[in-house]
Computed example of a mutant assay.
Amino acid sequence: MRSLSTRSRLLGLAGLLVLALGPLGQAGAQNPAATPPAEPVLAADLREEIQHIPVTVSDLYGRQETRQIPITVFRPAGAGPHPLVILNHGRPTRDKRAQQGRQRYEHMARYLVAKGFAVMLPTRLGYWETYGDFDPEDSGACNAMRIEPMAKAASDQVLATLAYAQSQPDIDTSRWLVMGQSVGGLTAVATVARHPAGLVGGINFSGGTGGDPERRAGNPCGPAVLAKAWEAQAKEARVPMLWLYWANDLYWGEDNPRRWQQAWTAGGGLAEFHTLPASGKDGHNGMNADMDHWVPLVEAYLARLGFTRPGVPTVPPAQGQRRIDAVNEVPISESAREGFYRKFLAAPAPRAFAIGPSGNVGWATGDWAVGRALGFCQARKGQACKLYAVDDQVVWAP
């Protein structure tokens, strides 16, 4: 069961998302600067767990530290060995780094696990529980940025995560990928530049650094500095990448990412580049809020690398004998029908409603509705759920 604060956080990420998982707990108003976010319940169906590993990194000023960082691990069912994705988070403003919580990207992880990947997501040093006196991703003043130290510190933590994965018998690190969003995308690029053993590809979602959507919308610090750094890093890159940006990215604007990709390829790197149409108020969050549009591009990219198992949930054919508005025929409790299914009926398409074997339900509207509905239904109990309705059609086949 999700608390109100957790539910609100998810809605904030997806914008149009509506969910129904059970009775809501009570939560009073809180000061986000003073109260850490509630720790989410582990997703049982993704075999989610938390591990801590040591990392040794240096900052812009040459200070070196060894600290423990948390890693969120998701695994597919079965003994494996499963190919690996190391997924990397972005860099919020200083006042939010302590409050951002353990990084999970659950919907993204759910898609990758459905494709058969184990997913490891390190919450890097300087964020959440390690926020404090040491920030290895400080790149200096806006007019005098240095990209290399922060890129090395971030990618060092990817390699430390890889070393931990190599100790796990159910994970195949002979074929793995690195992915990330925002500074996590920069981290993915920096990791590809170091061509570690077993790496076969990387995906950069809205990658970069120096953005400020409130004071410098579309005009980041040092875009030419980043271009120069990526051109230099590309000389050692070996694997093909996929770079995805959105037209209305308030951190970078529309033109800078294309220049960065041109610098990367000029240096010898390989990167298929796409600018996707505007998403929401700020396309910088497209990885989380625009899955319907980027998933086909990622499916095609991963298929070229040999990962052909589909990650898109299958929608069964419509059951013509069932009417979507026949509320009393939905095979769940009366309270769930009245509390959740009627809300689903009132929601706009795209929308989906899922049911689990013990009567648990999940529903969603908007982006990636089918995948989110199934995830909300089955995450906490770990039971596989089935779709009951998608858009205006009942697809339930008992």
Rank of each mutant, 00 (worst) to 15 (best):
S5Y: 03
S8H: 08
S8F: 11
L11Y: 11
L19E: 14
P23Q: 10
N31W: 15
T35F: 00
L46G: 07
I53P: 07
T56F: 01
G62D: 09
R63C: 04
T66R: 10
A79W: 03
L87S: 09
G90C: 04
Q100I: 04
G101C: 12
Q103K: 14
Y105M: 15
V113S: 01
P122Y: 03
Y127R: 02
G132Q: 04
F134I: 09
P136W: 15
D138N: 09
S139D: 05
G140F: 01
A141H: 13
N143I: 10
Q157R: 03
L162M: 07
Y164F: 04
Q168Y: 02
I171P: 03
W176T: 01
W176P: 00
L177Y: 11
V178G: 14
V183F: 08
G184W: 01
L186A: 09
T191P: 09
R194T: 10
N204K: 00
G207H: 10
G207M: 06
G207A: 03
D212P: 03
A229E: 01
W230K: 02
K235Y: 00
G253S: 12
E254W: 08
P257R: 11
A289W: 03
D290T: 15
L297I: 06
A303E: 02
F307E: 07
F307G: 09
V315E: 08
A318R: 14
I324T: 03
E329S: 04
P331L: 10
E334H: 08
S335P: 06
R337I: 10
E338D: 06
L345D: 13
A346N: 12
A347P: 06
F353K: 13
V361I: 07
T365N: 07
W368K: 06
G382H: 12
G382D: 06
A384C: 04
Q393S: 05
